[in-house]
Design a protein around this nucleic acid. Structure first.
Lengths: 145, 145
DNA sequence: TATTGTTATACTCTATAACTATA
DNA sequence: TATAGTTATAGAGTATAACAATA
């Protein structure tokens, strides 16, 4: 029966992507509304107002090169969404924080992106709960592996 | 209770993305193995060997500009994965088909991409079935709206 | 010497506008 | 005149290598 389970997992995985593709338009609209690229959006989601993050750690979080992180942060800085501040104690390091304007935009994006697609809202409550529970279980598995 | 359901849908949606992000590395690896970009992969998945598709319909399927479709097909043509053939009857139109080499690469990619992440395989059968059924229901809702 | 971040450069991806050839 | 596709061009996103400042 091992084969059957593999096939079931493969089908589930394919469905996962199909649903993702079918709801792609909605996410594009939210970003277009605020003139943000997918990059900008991801960056806003990663940052916070409090202590700030080093360029290095941002590059690692985005799985990209340090020079690319410079480029991404430059873009956000030009629009007034982030600030580079010097780290006290090690003047090589820069801490990037969200400005109030950046915090505001982040909140808007989050609201827009987390609005579930109508197709999800249309599901019966029990189906939604089953979906959520299965995803939570799957996420937990990624932590343990 | 409408509010509760909206919150449930929002949470489910957030989980969906979280799982997607956590399994991102796996998909990158498959594409890197064959030297394909995400673009190339999507294109290979869309095409077939039989009748071919017009550039216009490809651009529509990829939700991109016609000139971009030209660029994408050019890339695949250079690597010998696709061919442009003239449509009999209307010589303005070109039909793009997969070559045998393209068909082979398509099959490899499909195998690689449809391998479910280990975290999915680790779920109990009942959870997997619930997940699949919920996704199928959600996909169906996108068709009706 | 090693590390943090930036700049110079080049290549890929994408869209707009102008163009060619058919219809 | 309208449509299918391409080319010219420009801007965004990405990486590599060389560089500056600091440790």
């Amino acid at each position: 029966m091992a084969t059957d389970k593999a096939a079931l997992a493969a089908e589930t995985w394919a469905r996962f992507f199909e649903f993702l593709m079918r709801t792609h338009g909605q996410r594009d609209k939210v970003m277009a509304r605020y003139g943000l690229t997918p990059n900008d959006t991801r960056a806003l989601m990663t940052l916070d107002t409090a202590e700030g993050r080093t360029m290095r750690s941002l590059a690692a979080a985005w799985n990209c090169d340090a020079s690319n992180a410079t480029f991404i942060i430059d873009r956000l800085e030009k629009r007034g969404f982030v600030e580079r501040t010097a780290k006290p104690g090690d003047r090589r390091v820069k801490l990037v924080i969200l400005t109030p304007a950046g915090e505001k935009m982040r909140k808007r994006m989050k609201e827009g992106m987390y609005v579930p697609p109508p197709a999800l809202l249309a599901l019966p409550r029990a189906t939604l709960e089953a979906l959520r529970d299965a995803l939570v279980a799957a996420i937990k598995e990624t932590e343990e592996g």
